[in-house]
């Protein structure tokens, strides 16, 4: 029970990588299907649809970043792994924003990318506008990333 704080912190890190990664993989997978459909009919659109397919992939990177920072802070990657239960729970809570927002926004951005790829299929000159629609979803993943980062860097200074 002495290391329960560490366990919670590690679960938080795992959740950040796990859920955000799931969101991205679903989103990139959906967009990939649409991209393949367009390229099957018009190979010249490959580069445009590839960019749109990659947009939902960022949540997975954000999740990885948070997991990495958390693991380095709690001593998984070197240093002491001792911490109080309260601190461990604090790390766990700090990881939740990117875990859940990463999951949901990854899927939502994937759907927006699918629609954007359809728009590019119809009119390749609309690529710039088409990219904005899924990119808007990114805002919320960035906000969650910001909250998770600020919280994780603030926890070591807390006396709990």
């Amino acid at each position: 029970m002495a290391n329960l704080g560490f366990v919670f912190a590690l679960i938080g890190a795992a959740a950040a990588a796990l859920f955000a990664g799931m969101g991205s993989s679903i989103g990139v997978g959906r967009a990939g299907q649409a991209a393949a459909g367009v390229v099957a009919e018009d190979g010249s659109q490959f580069s445009k649809v590839l960019i749109l397919q990659l947009l939902p992939g960022t949540q997975g990177i954000y999740g990885l970043l948070i997991a990495f920072i958390t693991m380095s802070q709690i001593g998984v990657l070197g240093g002491s792994a001792d911490m109080s239960l309260a601190k461990g729970l604090a790390y766990f809570a700090a990881c939740l924003p990117i875990a859940f927002v990463g999951l949901v926004s990854g899927m939502a951005q994937g759907n927006a990318s699918v629609a954007a790829i359809g728009l590019v299929a119809k009119d390749p000159s609309q690529f710039g506008k088409a990219m904005i629609f899924p990119a808007m979803v990114e805002t919320y993943a960035i906000l969650a990333l910001l909250v998770s980062i600020l919280a994780i860097f603030a926890i070591p200074g807390l006396t709990i």
Binding site: Q33, A36, V38, A40, E41, I117, G118, K122
Partner: peptide
Amino acid sequence: MSNQYIFAVARIRKKELE
């Protein structure tokens, strides 16, 4: 949301141009 026809619909989007 169904993933089943995403590839097919994207191809149809191109075909609709014809």
